[in-house]
């Protein structure tokens, strides 16, 4: 766990590299997360919406990024955590979660967050505010 005294602007979090997202991952995440939207698990529904395939839940990527944060600071220090889902994550994608401290002031650190895929696509950008007091 990081010592919060060591945080400064520009500090990079250790990246979190995930294995390829399988259809099994999506089925299990649907059950575990309670998000049963069939667009993520049922090819017939995806096709009826004009898509070629199912795609991963945005909240799966946000959960991976959450691991990046809680692996770095104790969870109770996280004050806010927000993301924008900027591109869909296809099946078999290999996400990498990254974070960088962009400001430290008034006892709080702001961390810029991103999830990128192996082909360079950014799927998610975000920000977390960490309490350093």
């Amino acid at each position: 766990m990081t010592m919060v005294d060591d945080l400064r602007e520009g500090t990079e979090l250790p990246p979190l590299r995930l294995p390829p997202i399988t259809r099994t991952t999506l089925a299990l995440f649907a059950g575990a997360s309670g998000d049963h939207n069939p667009i993520h698990i049922d090819l017939d529904v995806a096709r009826s919406a004009g898509l070629d395939d199912v795609f991963a839940h945005g909240m799966l990527s946000m959960a991976y990024l959450g691991r990046l944060l809680t692996g770095w600071v104790p969870q109770h220090r996280i004050r806010t955590y927000r993301v924008r889902f900027v591109a869909v994550t296809p099946v078999h994608a290999e996400p990498t979660c990254t974070g960088r401290v962009v400001s430290v002031r008034d006892g709080r650190a702001t961390v810029a967050l991103a999830v990128t895929l192996a082909d360079g696509t950014t799927t998610l950008t975000g920000e977390a505010v960490i309490d350093l007091s």
């Binding site: 667009i39 909240m59 993301v83 924008r84």
Partner: peptide, 26 residues
């Protein structure tokens, strides 16, 4: 998702654009 149906929205046309959490206690 019943609120989407109440608004006449087809779930297949829905994307999650953003998500934010503010935390006050574990």
């Amino acid at each position: 998702w019943s609120y989407l149906a109440d608004l006449g929205v087809d779930l297949r046309r829905v994307l999650h654009g953003e998500q934010e959490f503010s935390y006050h206690a574990m």
